[in-house]
Structure formats: C-alpha cells, structure tokens
Amino acid sequence: MKTTNSFGIHFNIRTDKERDGGAPVFAIITVNGQRASMVLKDRISVKSWDMKNGIGKSNTSEGKKVNVYLDETRQSITDCYKDLHAQRKVITSESLKAAYLRTGNDQSA
C-alpha cells in the first residue's frame, strides 16, 4: 500500500522580535497538517521582506541574498524529506525538523 503525505515549507519573519534593524526568519514545515517551526540563522529588515510571498524583496540586495539562503534551506529540507521517505520512516513535521537540524532525535518509529 502506498501512502502519501502532504508536505510544505514556507518562510516568515517575526516582526515582534526585530532588533538592530533585522527580524529573524523562520521556516515553517508542514506535514499532514502538523506544523513545526524553527528560527533560521539569517535576519532581514522588515522593509526588505515581502510578507505576501514569504520571501525577500528581489529589488533589494538584502532581499536577493536572503532568497538565495531560503532556496538552499528549502532544498535541504526537501532532501531530508526524500531521505526519510526512502528509509520508509514515518514522516512528521518534528522528525523532518530533527533530520534537518541533525539533532538525532528521530521521533518516527
């Protein structure tokens, strides 16, 4: 029997945590309606962030730089998803987050 998971990644910033002109960027991983979020290493100014699309504004150098980082992050998380799927493990948002962060907390059984 073949099973499928719904899987998505989107990015957002936390304007309430803004300091020194930059807000932290968060990745939100969704698997089968369950979410896990994690703060990423990059920060961006609120004026360089496109709230509607969840990416940096491409008309700013800061936005372009962040978009490259977000693309790399999205690809890494997708690769972790594919690896877990190939290993026939139960994929949850938390197990995918742990695989990406390499914490070793494999919460799938």
Rank of each mutant, 00 (worst) to 15 (best):
W49V: 02
K41D: 15
S6V: 05
Q34E: 15
T78G: 04
K65F: 04
H85T: 09
T4Q: 13
K65D: 02
V25P: 01
N67L: 04
V39A: 12
N32C: 09
A109L: 13
I44M: 01
K2T: 09
G56A: 08
S45I: 00
G63K: 08
K97R: 15
Q107Y: 07
P24E: 05
I55K: 15
Y81Q: 07
A86C: 07
D79Y: 07
E94W: 04
E72S: 11
K89R: 14
R43M: 03
K82Y: 05
R14L: 03
M1A: 11
D42R: 07
I28M: 00
H85N: 09
G8I: 02
N12I: 09
R43N: 12
T3C: 05
R35T: 09
G21V: 00
K52I: 03
G104V: 05
K65R: 14
F26H: 13
I29F: 06
V31I: 04
N105M: 11
S93Y: 00
S45H: 00
E18G: 04
V39S: 12
P24K: 12
P24G: 04
G63M: 00
E72W: 04
G22W: 07
G104T: 05
K47R: 14
I55Q: 02
Q87V: 01
R19M: 12
Q107S: 07
L84M: 12
T15C: 07
F7M: 15
R14S: 13
K89H: 11
Y69I: 10
S48H: 08
L96E: 07
R74A: 03
E72F: 06
T73H: 11
S95G: 08
G104K: 11
G56E: 04
S45A: 10
K47N: 10
W49M: 05
T92S: 11
N32L: 10
T60I: 07
Y69Q: 11
N32I: 03
Q107G: 10
Q87N: 14
K57T: 02
T4M: 13
G33A: 02
A27T: 08
H10T: 15
R43L: 05
S45T: 04
V90H: 14
L101C: 00
I91E: 13
K65P: 00
